[in-house]
Design a protein around this nucleic acid. Sequence first.
DNA 1: TCTCCTGGTACCCATTGGGTACCATGGCAG
DNA 2: CTGCCATGGTACCCAATGGGTACCAGGAGA
Lengths: 126, 126
Amino acid sequence: MAVMTTAADTSEEGCGDARSVYRAACPCRDMLDLLANKWSALALGALEDGPRRFGALRTRLQGVSPKVLTQTLRRLEEHGLVDRTVYAEVPARVEYRLTPLGADACAPLAHLRSWVEQNIDRFPGG
Amino acid sequence: MAVMTTAADTSEEGCGDARSVYRAACPCRDMLDLLANKWSALALGALEDGPRRFGALRTRLQGVSPKVLTQTLRRLEEHGLVDRTVYAEVPARVEYRLTPLGADACAPLAHLRSWVEQNIDRFPGG
DNA sequence: TCTCCTGGTACCCATTGGGTACCATGGCAG
DNA sequence: CTGCCATGGTACCCAATGGGTACCAGGAGA
């Protein structure tokens, strides 16, 4: 996943000062990879106005398969962008909600989504 | 690529009115997939302040392999975000530059990149 | 007992991401 | 005249990942 190519980061050890997505070894790279992703962008946006259950998210993100949705949500959870709460009910109820960090991340992603929707006609064959 | 699942878009045929990245059949989905991508976001950003040659881009996007860079740029070209100009010199010189559409797309992507760089410390283990 | 509901997981396959090696062209050093 | 280099890729290969379908658990309700 992290590239960590042999050379390339000769003068950068873990990106001491200059945080930059353009540096291969900077953790920013991984975060960008996490957020700059179709399903992440959609999932975070779907949680923007409150907690949602797995099934509700599956409906909102039309065309997502359960496996991919699970993967996406787990990855977002690992990185502290969403919280996952399991209620011991029957049938099991699971709620996903944004963390404060996740809520903040929504802003740039919302810009991106709405830019796409507003400019789709400008794309060749769009 | 486009999912086009059997059901799911029963009431949507190519997303007639409601443009939404949340609809599986909407072309917005493909555009989001194109832009919400690590290398696309980096490549477009690298072209923000003027045309760049292939080699220069390769240097800027630390850790990118030539093949992946080519793929990324070609895909952006296909979708009208960048222009590719080959100069018949020796050795061949190839310049990439943003189209007006590509330049516009840079804004939301720049937000995303800088959000990541400014919030990287808030990530667990960041 | 049989079925339904939720929120997944197991398993499998195709696509793709990605790396390394190599190529074509002509200038230029030798 | 012969390498050798630089640029901008492509060819080939592999592993990971994306993604789909099938299935499961576990109790409620009929």
